[in-house]
Design a protein around this nucleic acid. Structure first.
Length: 583
RNA sequence: GCCCUCGUAGCUCAGUGGAUAGAGCAUUGGUUUCCUAAACCAUGUGUCGCAGGUUCGAUUCCUGCCGAGGGCACCA
């Protein structure tokens, strides 16, 4: 399902110059290997960036990979390779040195001219620095949030929303044509209960003397109108909707021609609330897909017929079953209940078939961990219908545990013991909320201590990134006041300080970082990368001054700072975070 | 019982089959006549849960075990 990019793919994106550094070195190494008797069929050298700067800028492990093929010690192969590379010779404007180290690594050192080109590349790309084209010509849909309109978005929805939105942006920057879609169902049992909850509250507002009852036990105990459903929604927002209904439509709604008046009022109000919350998070959906349309078009019944024709569906005990045991499952699952009502699996299969019919080359679903066991059924379903299930990729994120006062907060929409996403943003701010959900891998449990988040918000890593950006803006403002400007051509020989060169090298990685995060659907890779950029800039800032230096040096450093601002601004924008010019 | 995820520093977590496994927080000490101190510098931490296997090389891949969380409805 997931299609991890090869190492080579990611790193190629690192050097989007006309001819990438790695492609160049690959050619060089293959030529050298030919001179040594030839490499095995299909051999491709692998490269990586060494963590230790002493090991150069780019490292190749070809000699170790080929030890068996040549029946020689890796170190010896590396020496021979290096000899051939030096005598070819290497392009001096790209590579300054090649060294053999450790068990047989070939370590390449970039020429200063290559770094100068790199800096020029960043400045020329501007707001587009970080974009790549691996997804060009392909359409991707990211389906996320997809909360039914039964209540305000909770913290758990927040992780879903921010992950989905950021994955969508990442795919956009990787060249895909991206659609953000919200899937919902306003026809199920949940919605009926919601409507009944509002109706009960409404009736007791009309007549406060109506009899009441007590539901729940202990801490969950609640006094409600007698007509309130046992499993009803308890939140205050239900009361607000009922009150608004009374104010706007008067006291005689019960028994009105439209039996769904309470349900529809609730849906409208709650959706408005949800969209408002998403707007605060900078999230804008391109489309909303109503599950009901799959019923109205008869699509789900067509699918049932098709699956039945393939003997993957059968009747038992008055229900319709999906033969999932045919796909290695332990038991078959129900597609249509004996009541005649489909379970959600059937419309889900129809929904994904619809997405693929709409021509999407990639469909990313963002699901909480509770969906882990069910999506294989859906994939088996669409595969059985003849669709390419490999186009569907599911991102599973683990749950968010909220800690308040040292205690985990139990979260249930129905019991109204949740913390809403809005409340979270009120407490820690929109940027912190987004960054918090993005800074960790989706498949780890997220422990969110509210008290700590508030206290520590000043030291939150997101501020570190934003502060670096604001600081650069301040420098650029001040430089402009003193008449300095970013030059068209930078004399990099003036940028000889290690912290200057380190900054250029890390900035070159933005396209690769974004492309990698997009392909693996892991936004935290970019969040971590941006921290590295901010650290590199801050070190440069601590070591090198700009204003007051000789004009040529000041100009070169100004170009460097300007590029760093671009990298931070573009990166923050992909994560959906603001890039303040002053803090 | 079966399935999924996780297990790395005191805490929260990064880590792409590669060389000496890293950040932040916390601790302790220092730095500001200087473009933003929301900063910087220094300080010392590891049985990468355990045991096998694959490999020139495993924290990374595979198997088993242990531990934590989640999921295994004619709910969604």
């Amino acid at each position: 399902m997931r299609t991890p990019c090869g190492k080579f793919g990611v790193y190629t994106a690192r050097f989007p110059n006309s001819r990438s550094m790695q492609a160049y070195l690959t050619d060089c190494i293959l030529t050298a290997l030919d001179a040594m008797g030839g490499a095995p069929e299909g051999f491709t050298p692998e490269f990586e960036q060494p963590a230790n700067p002493e090991h150069g800028d780019l490292s190749c492990n070809a000699a170790m990979q080929l030890a068996r093929h040549f029946r020689k010690a890796p170190r010896q192969i590396a020496d021979e390779l290096a000899g051939h590379l030096r005598s070819q010779p290497l392009d001096a404007s790209r590579i300054a040195a090649v060294e053999v180290a450790g068990p047989g690594f070939l370590n390449f050192r970039f020429a200063d001219a290559h770094l100068a080109d790199s800096l020029a590349t960043i400045l020329a790309a501007g707001d587009g620095w970080g974009r790549t084209t691996s997804g060009a010509g392909q359409r991707a849909m990211v389906e996320f949030v997809s909360a039914n309109p039964t209540g305000p978005l909770t913290v758990g929805h927040g992780r879903n929303a921010v992950l989905g939105d950021t994955i969508a942006t990442l795919l956009d920057w990787a060249g895909y044509d991206v659609t953000r879609e919200y899937y919902f169902n306003d026809a199920g049992r949940q919605m009926r209960v919601l409507g009944e909850s509002v109706r009960a509250r409404y009736l007791s507002l009309v007549d406060p003397d109506l009899p009441t009852k007590t539901i729940g036990e202990g801490e969950d105990e609640l006094i409600v109108p007698e007509s309130f459903p046992e499993e009803g929604y308890r939140g205050d927002y239900i009361l607000d909707i009922a009150r608004q209904l009374l104010d706007e439509k008067g006291p005689d709604l019960d028994g009105a021609p439209d039996p769904d008046v309470f349900k529809r009022a609730a849906e409208t109000a709650i959706f408005a609330d949800i969209e408002q919350t998403l707007k605060r998070l900078n999230i804008r959906m391109d489309s909303f897909f109503n599950e009901r349309s799959l019923y109205e078009s008869n699509r789900i019944w067509d699918i049932l017929d098709q699956l039945r024709a393939k003997d993957l569906v059968y009747d038992k005990d008055g229900a319709v079953w999906f033969r999932t045991t045919a796909f290695g499952k332990e038991a078959d699952t129900v597609l249509v209940k004996s009541t005649g009502e489909p379970t959600y699996r059937l419309p889900d299969i129809g929904y994904h078939a619809d997405k693929l019919d709409r021509g999407f080359d990639l469909c990313v679903d963002v699901f909480g961990a509770d969906h882990i066991a069910t999506f294989p059924d859906v994939l088996d379903g669409i595969r059985s219908l003849g669709y390419d299930a490999d186009k569907v990729d599911v991102v599973i994120y683990q749950f968010v545990t909220l800690i308040r006062g040292g205690q985990p907060v139990k979260m249930s929409t129905r019991k109204a013991t949740y913390v809403t996403l809005d409340e979270l943003m009120d407490e820690v701010g929109e940027d912190v909320t987004r960054y918090f959900f993005l800074m960790r891998s989706p498949n780890t449990h997220l422990e969110f201590d509210l008290d700590l988040a508030k206290e520590a918000s000043e030291k939150n890593p997101v501020f570190y990134l934003q502060y670096a950006h604001a600081r650069i803006c301040s420098i650029l403002r001040k430089a402009q006041e003193t008449g300095l400007s970013v030059p068209a051509v930078v004399d990099l020989s003036l940028l000889a300080h290690p912290s200057e060169q380190a900054l250029i090298k890390v900035m070159m990685d933005l396209p690769g970082s974004i492309a990698g995060a997009a392909q693996f659907r892991e936004p935290h890779r970019l969040a971590n990368y941006l921290r590295d950029v901010a650290v590199a800039f801050t070190q440069f800032y601590g070591n090198c001054r700009i204003i007051g230096e000789a004009p040529t040096l000041a100009a070169a450093r100004l170009a460097l700072a300007s590029a760093a601002r671009l990298v931070l601004r573009n990166g923050l924008s992909v994560l959906g975070l603001s890039a303040p010019e002053r803090m």
